[in-house]
Design a protein around this nucleic acid. Sequence first.
DNA 1: CGTTGCGTTGATCTCTATCAAAAAAGGTGG
DNA 2: CCACCTTTTTTGATAGAGATCAACGCAACG
Lengths: 221, 221
Amino acid sequence: MNKLERLKEVFLFSMMPEEQLQKLAGFCAFRKLKRNEILFLDEDKATSFYYIISGKVKIYKVSPAGQEYTFEIHKSGDIFAEAAIFDRETYPANSQAIEDSELIQIPKNDFIALIVDSPRLTLKIMHAYSRRLRSLVDMIESLSMLDIKARLAKYLLQNCQTEGGLCVFKYKSTKKELALLLGTIPESFSRALKFFKEKKIIEEKQKKIIILNMEKLKSFI
Amino acid sequence: MNKLERLKEVFLFSMMPEEQLQKLAGFCAFRKLKRNEILFLDEDKATSFYYIISGKVKIYKVSPAGQEYTFEIHKSGDIFAEAAIFDRETYPANSQAIEDSELIQIPKNDFIALIVDSPRLTLKIMHAYSRRLRSLVDMIESLSMLDIKARLAKYLLQNCQTEGGLCVFKYKSTKKELALLLGTIPESFSRALKFFKEKKIIEEKQKKIIILNMEKLKSFI
DNA sequence: CGTTGCGTTGATCTCTATCAAAAAAGGTGG
DNA sequence: CCACCTTTTTTGATAGAGATCAACGCAACG
């Protein structure tokens, strides 16, 4: 997979026009970190932010007494130190790889320049942000208001696609990941699926879930 | 409350510099809608987006057969039709007040102009978005990983302020709202508070929660 | 003083995480 | 293609967290 393709997988960049993406590819860098390698230290000048392709990176502080406190552990798919892009001049904490990791490093100033002299890009990014905000708020609502069956029903209805008159949801990964995405565990997820299958509301084939009765499914939300 | 103050309450605008906010106040409009009044129709030119001060507004479509389907019901505090700001030329659905409502109407083009010729504003807005994204992701993690006590502990630790050597969390609204914010109900929230009070980890005074033992509180996360 | 809304407490019941184990699905090598 | 092993998924039994329902204390307020 080349640089450009990898960049497109990062949510923040996924809606960027091709032209800008190529510029971005021009100044971003791919970096590999060995386990325990330090990425940056507290108070270092914040020149870049990062996207994790693989591995894990922790963000931590060390107290005057030498006590270490970990704030966050970022994993593959995360963007981090991005606060540095928009406000801070220095990093607010230390960062160290806790596994061998691969990162994309994006220099802050080049990125800001890219944004600033391209209103269209700005709007695209804002739009991407808006959509993401909306979907996160939606997820929070679901988690706090709905039980597992309802969350599953909602998820299927929101993510299905019509295919030969039928609504089908296809997934690539494992059911375990779907379960986690819905804020539950594989066992409970399996039981929720079973529930709808027994009621003939859905049907499973390989890695497809076919919705047989959308109205009934909706009624569980 | 004047126009400017009201605007500051809208998250999207809350981090805008005063100067720009005043411009915004110059071209936004306050509108009142009677129950059942139509705000815009599907395919109408999308000239504005809206913030709801009070009331409820639904977004809906009508099928060729005359069947109506409601997509969303927006309530006070929501921004809506904001997709229109960033990508679309026309509204993607109809919108109608389902209660008497009051809205702030923000013309899209004026708003875009405000953004576009002010890179600093752009960055501010992006920064605000970033922070909000982060906090929402954090909330999702909490909801799916932590029990009520842990969520309360985390929330208090994240939102407390030092005051005379003590860490204090002050709230303005009701406990009911705090409960909902933590994804639970007043009864359970009250029990969680009681749990920490009995353990002498926190103390309540009026609308303040005083953290007596931060270490112990942390240990519940 | 009644009334109204908020907060707390108690009793109960449901949902779902957990633990344990079986079943099914995928690989792998012969 | 089959036997074997690993991983994923399902099923069952159990326990615990938290929602629900009901009732009461309490303050603000007309």
